[in-house]
Design a protein around this nucleic acid. Structure first.
Lengths: 334, 334
DNA sequence: TTGAAAGCGCTAACAG
DNA sequence: CTGTTAGCGCTTTCAA
C-alpha cells in the first residue's frame, strides 16, 4: 500500500479509502490510485484489514465429519451463498469431537465474523453461551434463543409411515443413528407419535454409526427382529443395509422395505434405488448463511425483509418413493 | 495479551514468549503466565500472529468443484494430514473458473503459507509462475519444476484394457471427460498406446462434463457407436451411463461392459457395482500436504527423509473388478 | 531471563 | 477531499 501511495504521491490513508470506500475520494485520484494498484499487482492483505476493522468477511462452517455426503450439500449451499456475497468460507472439520468443536468455536472469533454450526456435539446450554460471544446459526438443532435452521424430517417421517402403511405394513422398525444426534431422537419421537395415531407398532434397533459400513449390522438386526419395513436414521445406513440384505438373499422390497433419510448423493443409483426423505440440504446451507449475514447486516441486495432473521426456520422435507419400498409380504399382513 | 501481562506483572513481550517459545523463559514465570492465560480464557489471535511472524500455519487447498465426490477424498486426506500437524486448512472452491483460481492464488499469500492445487484450469506456465511466489504442490498435473503428486491412472488404464481383452473384447470406446482436463488426455493417450500394443481398436466419444447427469448422453453415444466395452473418464460419468443403459434396456455387462475411474463413494453400491480403477485419492491428499509441509520445513516427527520433497510422485492405481464388466457378446467376437 | 520499542499492513478518527 | 496520527494483537530485535 505504501508503494502505491508513493507511486501516486498521496498518503497511505487515501489509498486505503480509494480502495475500500471509493466514493469518499476524488474521482480523479481515485482512478489514478486504482490504476496504480492494478499495475503494481496489489492485493489487499485481508488479515491486516481484519485486524483494524474487526471484520473479516469470512464465516466459519463447522461440520462434524467432512466425509459424510450429507455435509457436502450443506457446504455447497453455504459456499455458494457466501461466494455470492463476496464472503469467504472457513471449513472446519470437528471430527465428531466436542473438544475440537469447543476449540474451533473459541478460536473462531478473530478468524470469522460468524459461524454456522452443524451437527453439534455440544449441549444446548454450551451452544447458547457461545452464541452470546459470536454470531451463530445452528443447523438441525434448536437451542433456545439461538437462530436455527431445521430440516423438518419429522414431517418426512410422517409421510414415510403413511406410505408404508398404505403398502400394508403394520409394524415399522426404526434403525437408530448415534445417540448423540439430536435429529436421531427427533425422528424416533416423530415415528412413535405417528405410529400411535395410525395404530401400528414400532420397534427400534441401534444405535448405529452413520456410515455405510454400519448398515450390515443394522440389516442383520432388522432381519433378526423379523422386520418387514424399516426406516433408517439416514441414507448411509440404509444403503449399507441394502448391500447386506442382497448379500443375505433377502429381497428388497419383496421381503423387506427400506426407507432412508436425506436423499444424499447415491440414493438414486444404489440397488435398488432408495425410497427416502428428500431434504433440502443445500438450501439449508444457503438459508443458514442468509440468516447469519442478515444478523451481521451484510445481506446483498435481495435481502429477505426480516423474514427469519431470528428464531427457527423449518425447511420442509418430502418423501421420494423409489424401489426400495413395496407391499408388505403376506406373513406380515396375516 | 495485555490483560495477562497485567495480571502477572510482566511485559507483554514476555507473555508472548511464554506462550510461543516456552523454553526461552523462566520456568516459574512461564507456568504463572500459562495459568493466567488459561484462567482468562486467552486464545491467540492467529491473524495478528501471522501479521508479524509472516507465517500462518495454514494451507489453502484449491478444488475446482467442491461437489465432486473425488475431491471429498482429497480434502479428507489433506485435512487429516494438516490437522495432525496442527495446521489449518483453507478450502477454496474455484468453481471450474480459471479467473477464480487466479484470484484465489493471488490472494492466498497472506492467508496461507502454501497451497495445494488440484484440477487446475491454468496453463503449466501460469502454475509455474505462481509456484515462484508461493510454495505450491499440484495434484494430477505436471508443470516443469513444480512438485506434484500424480495418480497413475495410465497404469490403471492398462490393467483395465487387459481385463477387457481377457474377457474377449476387441474394441474399446473411451468416454471422454472435459477437454480442459489434463487427466483426460493422459488417460486417452494411455488407452491408445495400450490398444495398439495389444492390437485392438479404440474409439472415442465426448467430451462429457464430469457429472452423473452427463452419463445419459454418453450412454446414448456409446450405444450409437455400437460399443460393447467402454472406459469412462470417471466414475460419475460411468454411473450415469449405468442408469441410462438400464433405462434403455441395455444389459450391463451382458451387452455392454463399463469401466469407471477413481472408485469414488458410490462405485461399489451402484447397479451393477462398477468395475473401476481404484485411486488412492485420500493418500494423494496426504502426500501433497506432506510434500508441502516438507518444503516449508514444518514436518512433524515422522518426516520422510527427502523422499519426494521435490519432483513428482506417482501413486499407483489398481483395477477393482466388480459386476459392470463381463465377457464380450457373441456379435463382437465374431 | 526480561523489558522497551518498533513495526507487520491496514483502517479510523480527527484535523485541516 | 486528503493528510496525520493512532492503534488492531502480536512478534522480534536490541539492550539491559
Amino acid at each position: 500500500m505504501r508503494d502505491i501511495a508513493d507511486a501516486t504521491g498521496v498518503a497511505a490513508s487515501t489509498v486505503s479509502r480509494a480502495l475500500s470506500l471509493p466514493d469518499r475520494v476524488n474521482p480523479v485520484t481515485q482512478e489514478r490510485i486504482q490504476r496504480a494498484a492494478r499495475e503494481l499487482g496489489y492485493v489487499a492483505n485481508s488479515q491486516a484489514r481484519a485486524l483494524t476493522s474487526g471484520r473479516t468477511r469470512a464465516v466459519a462452517v463447522l461440520v462434524s465429519d467432512i466425509t459424510n455426503p450429507f455435509y457436502f450439500d450443506v457446504i455447497r449451499g453455504t459456499q455458494h451463498q457466501l461466494a455470492g456475497a463476496g464472503w469467504t468460507q472457513l471449513l472446519v472439520d470437528t471430527e465428531e469431537s466436542a473438544d475440537a468443536e469447543m476449540a474451533a468455536l473459541s478460536a473462531v472469533g478473530a478468524k470469522a465474523d460468524g459461524v454456522v454450526l452443524t451437527a453439534s456435539r455440544l449441549s444446548d446450554a454450551q451452544i447458547a453461551r457461545f452464541a452470546e460471544r459470536v454470531p451463530l446459526v445452528v443447523v438441525n438443532r434448536r437451542p433456545a434463543g439461538v437462530p436455527s435452521v431445521l430440516i423438518d424430517t419429522p414431517g418426512g417421517v410422517e409421510q414415510a409411515v403413511q406410505h408404508l402403511v398404505s403398502l400394508g405394513h403394520r409394524e415399522i422398525l426404526y434403525v437408530a443413528g448415534p445417540d448423540s444426534s439430536w435429529s436421531n431422537e427427533r425422528r424416533w419421537r416423530a415415528l412413535v407419535q405417528v405410529a400411535k395415531r395410525l395404530g401400528i407398532r414400532v420397534g427400534r434397533v441401534g444405535p448405529h454409526a452413520p456410515f455405510v459400513d454400519s448398515g450390515a449390522a443394522a440389516a442383520d438386526a432388522a432381519v433378526h427382529a423379523g422386520a418387514t419395513a424399516c426406516i433408517a436414521f439416514n441414507d448411509l445406513i440404509a444403503i449399507g443395509m441394502l448391500a447386506r440384505l442382497r448379500e443375505r438373499g433377502v429381497r428388497v422390497p419383496e421381503e423387506m422395505s427400506i426407507v432412508g433419510c436425506d436423499d444424499i448423493f447415491g440414493a438414486d443409483f444404489c440397488n435398488p434405488p432408495l425410497t427416502t426423505m428428500t431434504s433440502p440440504i443445500e438450501r439449508a446451507g444457503r438459508v443458514a448463511i442468509r440468516m447469519l449475514l442478515g444478523r451481521l447486516g451484510a445481506l446483498p441486495a435481495d435481502e429477505l425483509p426480516g423474514e427469519h432473521m431470528s428464531g427457527a426456520v423449518a425447511l420442509p422435507t418430502h418423501l421420494t418413493v423409489r424401489e426400495s419400498t413395496g407391499p408388505a409380504p403376506r406373513s406380515d399382513t396375516a
